[in-house]
Computed example of a mutant assay.
Amino acid sequence: MKTVSITENLIYGEDKPAVTVLIKTVTTKELRILMKKGQQMKEHKAPYPIVIELFEGAIDFGVEGEIQPLKKGDLIALDANVPHDLHCTEDCIIRLTISVLDSEQRVKDVV
């Protein structure tokens, strides 16, 4: 059994989003992304399906040119290789679920 808190030890990056691996399982990696208002993640694609949960705050989530406003409690799932971007409109805590085959470094490189 593994336990971790998504709301403890929050250290926001001054210039860019902060990405932390919270838990790894045999099939997924759970990442926490902390973003301050105004920060963004440029358009990118994930090589495997992903799930994003907005745990706190608000973002504008761009998917293939359309903006989807997300607020606390919202979840969104994307198939592999779907172009998307994030713009933070309120300080936020994001939980990102990626495949264990995916790299957390890929996510860090986007910021």
Rank of each mutant, 00 (worst) to 15 (best):
E14Y: 00
P17T: 01
D60Q: 06
L34H: 12
V26H: 04
I93F: 07
M1E: 09
G73K: 14
E90L: 06
K37T: 15
L31G: 01
V110T: 11
Q68W: 13
H87E: 11
V107N: 10
D74M: 06
E104W: 04
S99M: 00
D85R: 04
D102K: 00
P47H: 06
A58K: 13
N9Q: 14
G73T: 11
M35P: 07
K72A: 14
D109M: 08
V110S: 02
V110I: 10
H44R: 07
V26M: 03
E43A: 09
V111L: 09
T28I: 05
Q105N: 11
L86I: 07
L70C: 11
T28M: 08
K45R: 14
E14R: 02
I76C: 03
K37E: 15
Y48I: 01
D85S: 15
D74W: 07
V26G: 04
E53G: 09
I52F: 03
P47N: 12
K108V: 02
A18D: 07
T7H: 15
H87R: 07
D102Y: 01
P47Q: 05
E64I: 05
E8C: 07
E8A: 13
Q40A: 05
V100K: 09
T25N: 00
A58Y: 07
V107R: 07
F55D: 15
L22E: 14
L96Y: 10
E64A: 09
Y12K: 08
K2L: 02
L96N: 05
Y12M: 05
K24L: 01
V111E: 04
E30W: 03
Y48Q: 08
D102T: 02
K45I: 07
I67Y: 02
Y48E: 08
A80R: 02
A58M: 11
L78T: 03
T89Q: 13
G13M: 09
T28V: 06
R106K: 06
L75M: 10
E64D: 13
S99W: 01
A77Y: 02
D102W: 00
I6M: 15
K108S: 06
V110M: 05
E104F: 00
L75N: 10
T89P: 13
I94L: 15
G73P: 11
V19I: 12
R106I: 04
L22D: 11
P49K: 00
P83C: 08
E8R: 15
M41F: 09
V26Q: 04
V4D: 07
E66W: 02
Y48T: 08
C92R: 04
T20C: 08
G73N: 14
K108W: 10
K72E: 15
M1T: 09
Q105A: 02
Q68A: 04
A77G: 10
M41Q: 12
T20M: 06
L78F: 03
V107A: 10
A80F: 00
I93D: 15
K16D: 02
G38F: 00
I52G: 08
K36I: 04
L10F: 06
D85W: 09
K16R: 08
D85E: 13
P49S: 03
K72H: 12
Q68F: 14
V21K: 10
T28Y: 09
V100S: 09
D60M: 02
